[in-house]
Structures are given as C-alpha cells and as structure tokens.
Design a protein around this nucleic acid. Structure first.
Length: 780
DNA sequence: TGCACCGATGTTTTT
DNA sequence: CATCGGTGCA
C-alpha cells in the first residue's frame, strides 16, 4: 500500500481508496477533507487512471492550485494533466473550445458584476423605465437568480407565475429587460458569470455529442464544497457524471453560506437520492481546533434545525475558552484587537500570520486597519474591491478587451472617451440607437459611420474615426507582440498613463503604481507562459484569469502579515488566533438576513464557519456603538454570543443586556409570529422600501427535526421552498390575502400550491416565488 | 462636451 | 462616509 495512505485515520482512509461509484463525504470542519481529496486523486492515479480523465471542481482557484501542488508532490509530473479549478474557470475553458456551437466566438469576453450591472442600467435607461423601481442591483440579482435556476428568457415568458411575481413587485417589464440584456451580451460576444454555467448547461443539453465527449473524458469527478453549489452547477455535474457515475462530492451542510448567490443546501442533503448505491462517509474528527473551540462551534450550530446530524469531536487539547470582549466603539474594538495581537505575539513568540481578523462586511476593515497601522502590525486585506476591479485597472483591461473582441460593448463604452477625446454621452447614445436598430455592434457602426445616416457632426465623426484607427493599430500589434508589450504600448499611447500622471494627489500616484503593478503582472504571466511552452493566445488567457481571479489567488508581498477578510472569504482557511469582530445584532446576524428562518440559519452557519477557522484561540468582540454611514449608531451584542454554551466562553466584560430579549430562537418554533411586532414603527419610506423587496423572500418555517438525509424533502431552493406547508394550512398572501392550501404538487423549483383564497379565487402558485405566510397549520 | 459641485443613496456576503 | 448620478455653467 502506498506510503502516504498511512497518514490517514480509518475514517479518512475509507473514502480515499473508494475508487468507483457515487459517494458523498460529509466532512466536518477541520476534519481533513482536503487531505482526503488530495490523496484520493493520488490514489486514483496510482491505480492507473489517466489524469486526463479526472475532473476536480473546487471552490477557489487557490484551493485547486494548492491541491494540484500537493498531488504533484506525491505523483510527480502526471498531476499537470488534471482538470482542476472552480466551476467558472473550468467551464469557461470548455466554452472557449465549444462555444461556437452556441454562436459564441472563442475569444468571448467575461463580463464581471460591474459590467453586467452597467449594461442593465443602460438598458433600463434606454427603455425609459423608472430607475427607482427598476433598481439596477435588484434587477441584476433577479436575472442572476433566473439564470442560476435555468430560467432562460424563453422559459421566463412561458412561466406566468414568474411574470406575475415580477408584476407584483411592480416590475412588469422584467422580462423585456432580461431579454434585451441577454441579446446584448450575446451580440457583444460576452458571457457573465452566470452564463458560464448556464451556457455550459445549454451546450450539454443541446449537443448530445458534445456531452458524450466530455462524459467520456471526465470519468472520475470530484466536487469540493458541494453544499455551496447552485442548481446550474448541480445540473452540470449530474450531466457529466451520468455515464460513469464515478462521482465523489465532499462538503459540510453546516458550512453552506452562499444561498444568496443561489447555492442550494439541498444538493448535498439529497445527494443520496440522485444516484443508486451511494456510499456515504463521515469525517467527524476535527484536527484543527481545541476542545473549547469545537465545543463552542457545536453548541452554536445546534440551534439550527435544518441540518444533517453529525458529531464533530476532537482529541486535541482543551485550550482556552472563547474570549468575548466588549468595546465602546469600532475604533476601540480595533485598539483591542491590535493590542491583543501585539501582546499575544510577544508572550508566545508568534508570527503576524498566526492572526486573522474576520468580519461580516468588508466596510468593517477600516477601523481595524487604522488600529493595526498605529501598532505597526503588518496586515493584508483580502477581498473587498479586488485589484482588478479598480477603475484604473479596468480602464487598461478594457482596452485589451476591446482589442481582442471589438464587439465588447462595455469595454468600448468605458474607454471611448477616456482619456477624454470629445466623444460625449449624446454621441454615444446615438451610436447605441444605431447599433440596436441595425443589429450591428457599436464598433462596427463607428467603422461604417460614413455609409449610414446618423445625426453626428463631422468634427465628432473625425474623433470617432481616430478612435477606431487607434484600436485597429493595437489589433495589428496584437498579432505579433506578446501581451506585455502590447499592454505597455497601449497604456502609453492611449494617453491613460499621461492622464494619471496629471493627477499629483496621493491617490493619483497610487493609481499610477497600480497600473505599473498590472503591467508587471502581465509580464510575469507572459514569462510563465513561455516556460510552459503552450504558447496560446497570451492576452486572451490573461484576461480570462483576470476576470475569474479572486483576491485569494495571488499571494504576493511579505507573507508574514495579519489577515483581514470577510468570513465568506475565510472559508477553507485556518489561523492560530482568530478575532471575529462586530458581533452585534443587525450586523451579524445582518439586518438584511433576519426575515426568515432560513436566512437566520445561514447567518448562524456563517458564524460556525468563522469560529471553526481558529486553531488555538477565538475572540469575539462587539461594540456599544459603531459608525455606520458616518453616524454613530447604538449596538447590541449578537444573539449568537448567547448561543454558545457557557462552559466554552469567557465573557471578560459583562455582556450588555440585550434590548429585546424576546428575539430568541425559540420563537421560531412552528409558525413564526408576526415579525412586525418586534420591529420599530415603520416610516412611510421604509414601507415603500419593503414593498420593493425581492419577491422570493417570504416567511417560512421548517420541520422540527431533520434527522436523516433520506427523509430530507426534495426542494430546490432552501431560501424559498417551504417544506412545512401542507394541505389544509391557512396562509396569507401579500396580494391575494388569506386562503387555504388545497393541493400541493411538484418538488424543488416546480413545487406549486393550489390555494383557495377567501375572495373566491383559486390560484396555482409557484412556491419558489410566492410570498406566503403560514397563519395556521391544519392541526391547530 | 466637459467639469465642478451638489445631494441623494446605500452595505451584506462573491464566482 | 463614499460613490454615483444629476445639474448648471463655461
């Protein structure tokens, strides 16, 4: 038997050497799942399975890279042939090869969130809609959730319930926006993040031969963090695994924290139903944390009802209790964190990198940063506005994008007048109108400006011609030069650098530095590619990396720093000492996530994730008042603090009495009481705001105990499907009023309820989107 | 068309 | 507080 296998305990060994068939590994926090995945792949290779036939989908590119490195340590060169990466990056690659079936160019652009939202904003404006009703962000998230549920434009217009839901939310023209958005993306040769998954599904569904080809290729499939896959990802995995059924998924339902972007915890809860003879493994021994931390985390997650029962335990030392600290303000909280790090470091001879500060929202980093700076503690912020999303960087990459794909509408709009060349909004509007009318791209309209009738004066036409000439000259250069030389040439000759140089402010200098850093990055990339000797189109590949890069991916600079990041970003990481700051009601749990039980449970899982990052010591801090929107706001300690069993916590400063002790988890039993009772009186403005909320949110309750996976109800969206709803329930609907459930049918996305309303109407409502509140159950 | 200034508005979380 | 979009003037 291979030597590395001796490093595994029995529970880990079993799934590692299970080669064939469907299997699920429920892996508690810190139980060594990465090790199992790594060794399992190494084991597959040692059994003669070709690396070309293995697909491993991870949650971050960094995780993929690290795992690949570890596998290479064991098996050597063969590892480089493995397909490993995030869903988005792996399928982006496949779509480069196969996108032509769907009418996409191989050099399609990937629109990031910013690009997508700008385009939607433009469409809303072009359609003359009220931007206060059609809020770009809400429209974006709505369309994103359609796409992640495989509701295409065609499917949308075939679905009266959906259209009605949007109409109810005062957005009857959602569908038109959706259609226009999809058309415009297609015309621009662009895919947004959701398209990378949706179009993959389209590809695999519409082209059976393509599906067969990839089924045959990916004979062994592994999916990490399966609890955070969305419906679209789920279908891709199912399709690919269908032929050989060698599918291994790993995850922990207690760590599902991405419902807001469509992740569906039921994918993992129901895995055993999806395949025959699923082998299930559990990893319950935690190797990471002390007994106190594991105990604290367990006692917190115990408050959730929707979960797979498992016992995470540890043989590690008892360690210190979780420390709870009260601070006056956020600045004070920062000082506490900084001074504690300082002292602990001194007393225990620790590195800066032994510490992490985790928060619920990125905006909280500022106060911590200030305090760390004052103590001269080096730190690094992960996430937030990533490097590639900064304006000056996006400006440069927009040029590169346009060179590669001149149909790219968002790139063109971004730079057609930056640096200023006298092409204003009016001109641009006219170009867009002409482009929409003729079906041509904006770039082509400008190119053919002389042969079409358009209300643009000659001076401006000349400027437009100059712009095209400039881009065309870059295109010529791109045929021979490498990405670095091109990017450097572009930033110099386009006037971008000159523009930044004019700005002598410290911010301007930083921007200049950033552009330089980008160029260095491109240089590294190009040189790396030369070494790899698979000289593809370096520019295209660089841009793809940029579009899908996360802040975790590039580890540059001095590694000995305190890490600052959101809890989401910390998933999968571990640190000796972890500070979880801002443990306050309305912040954590977030005020936006306390409306439904499932939302609150997700917040609690998030807290569980945060706690289990710590190896030695966890600190929780909260403030009595905090700056929010530039104003000092009163704060109260988070309910989550009280949810930890007393034996695991050390409350250094007496807990501030919570203002409203009625907000207790026990109130969520059975029917949720009218939540309005506990809230401050609403202003008219707030009420208006409420009315515009996403329609899919509604009050739900869940079964008392969900003991076994097998009994878990099949449902498609944990956030929206009410598994408690039964025939006979009395429910309240926002618009139709009170009614009784007559019939339930369908599961998951299709779950419907026939409801007879008091006004006599009987309606068939899609549970996913209907805003239902249970007033009375049958047995009351 | 471009720039300077103003007020409104908003913050979860990310590929 | 910071960003964005709108307005008004050169």
């Amino acid at each position: 038997m291979e030597k590395y296998l001796s490093q595994l305990n029995d529970a880990q060994l079993e799934p590692t050497i299970q080669v064939n068939g469907p299997m699920i590994i429920i892996a508690g926090a810190g139980s060594g799942k990465t090790r199992v995945l790594t060794y399992r792949i190494a084991y597959l290779l040692s059994k003669g399975i070709d690396a070309f036939n293995i697909l491993a989908l991870t949650f971050t590119n960094k995780a993929a890279k690290e795992m690949k490195g570890r596998i290479a340590d064991i098996v050597g060169d063969e590892a480089k042939n493995l397909w490993m990466g995030t869903f988005h990056s792996v399928f982006a690659k496949i779509l480069r090869f196969e996108g032509h079936h769907l009418g996409y160019p191989s050099n399609f652009t990937i629109y990031d969130t910013q690009d997508s939202q700008k385009l939607m904003g433009a469409i809303i404006r072009e359609m003359g809609l009220d931007k206060d009703i059609y809020k770009t962000k809400q429209v974006y998230s709505r369309i994103s959730s359609y796409k992640n549920s495989l509701v295409t434009v065609k499917a949308y217009f075939k679905n009266p319930e959906l259209m009605e839901a949007d109409a109810m939310a005062r957005r009857p023209r959602m569908g038109e926006i959706y259609k226009e958005y999809v058309d415009r993306c297609f015309k621009a040769g662009a895919m947004d993040f959701d398209d990378l998954l949706l179009r993959t599904n389209e590809l695999l569904t519409r082209f059976p031969n393509v599906l067969a080809q990839y089924q045959d290729k990916f004979r062994y499939i592994l999916v990490d963090e399966y609890q955070d896959t969305n419906h679209s990802q789920y279908l891709i995995v199912r399709a690919l695994a269908d032929r050989f059924q060698n599918i291994c998924v790993v995850g922990d339902d207690a760590q599902s924290i991405y419902a807001f972007r469509g992740a569906n915890i039921n994918n993992i809860l129901n895995f055993q139903k999806d395949y025959d003879d699923v082998k299930m493994f559990r990893l319950e021994q935690n190797y990471r944390s002390t007994k106190n931390i594991v105990g604290a985390a367990n006692s917190v997650i115990e408050h959730n009802k929707t979960k797979i029962d498992k016992i995470v335990w540890t043989a590690n030392v008892e360690g210190e209790k979780v420390i709870v600290h009260r601070a006056m303000t956020d600045a004070d909280e920062g000082r506490y964190v900084a001074s504690t790090i300082w002292e602990t470091k001194m007393n225990n001879q620790l590195d800066n990198s032994d510490f992490a500060v985790l928060y619920r929202t990125n905006a909280q980093s500022r106060a911590i940063e200030d305090a760390l700076r004052k103590r001269d503690l080096p730190y690094r912020i992960y996430g937030g506005l990533s490097f590639y999303q900064r304006k000056e960087i996006k400006d440069v990459t927009a040029y590169l994008r346009l060179i590669l794909n001149s149909a790219d509408e968002e790139a063109l709009k971004r730079i057609i007048n930056y640096p200023a060349r006298g092409i204003g909004q009016t001109t641009l509007d006219r170009l867009v109108v002409a482009a929409n009318a003729t079906g041509k791209t904006i770039y082509d309209v400008i190119k053919e400006i002389d042969s079409i009738s358009i209300n643009i004066n000659n001076g401006t036409k000349n400027k437009l011609r100059d712009f095209i000439t400039l881009i065309e000259s870059y295109k010529v250069m791109n045929k021979t030069a490498n990405a670095f030389d091109l990017a450097e040439h572009v930033s110099k000759t386009s006037g971008l650098v000159k523009e930044l140089g004019k700005d002598g402010t410290p911010e301007g200098v930083t921007k200049m530095d950033n552009v330089q850093e980008l160029l260095n990055g491109i240089k590294d990339f190009v040189e790396g590619q030369i070494e790899l000797a698979d000289a593809g189109d370096s520019l295209a590949e660089f841009l793809e990396d940029v579009a899908l890069a996360t802040d975790l991916d590039g580890d540059k600079g001095d590694p000995n720093h305190v890490a600052l990041m959101s809890i989401h970003m910390a998933k999968g990481l571990e640190f000796g000492h972890v500070f979880i700051v801002g443990m306050e009601e309305d912040l954590f749990p977030s005020a936006m996530s306390m409306n439904t039980r499932s939302e609150l449970e997700e917040e609690r899982r998030l807290f569980y994730v945060a706690l289990t990052r710590a190896e030695q010591q966890a600190y929780l801090t909260y403030t009595l008042s905090r700056y929010r929107w530039g104003k000092l706001i009163d704060a109260e300690p988070s309910r989550f603090i009280e949810e930890i069993d007393d034996e695991f916590v050390n409350i250094v400063t007496p807990l501030k009495e919570r203002h409203n002790p009625m907000l207790d988890a026990s109130i969520f039993d059975d029917v949720e009481p009218n939540k309005v009772r506990f809230k401050k009186p609403k202003t008219a403005k707030l009420q208006k705001k409420e009315a515009m909320k996403k329609p899919e949110k509604f009050i739900i309750s869940t079964p008392k105990k969900l003991k076994r996976v097998k009994h878990a109800k099949v449902s498609d969206d944990s956030n929206a499907v009410d598994s408690k709803l039964t025939v006979g329930n009395t429910v309240n609907h926002q618009r139709f009023g009170r009614g009784q459930v007559i019939k339930l049918e369908g599961t998951g996305a299709d779950a419907k309820a026939e409801i007879k309303f008091q006004n006599g109407d009987t309606k068939n409502l899609l549970l996913r989107f209907a805003k239902l509140e249970i007033l009375r159950t049958k047995h009351d």
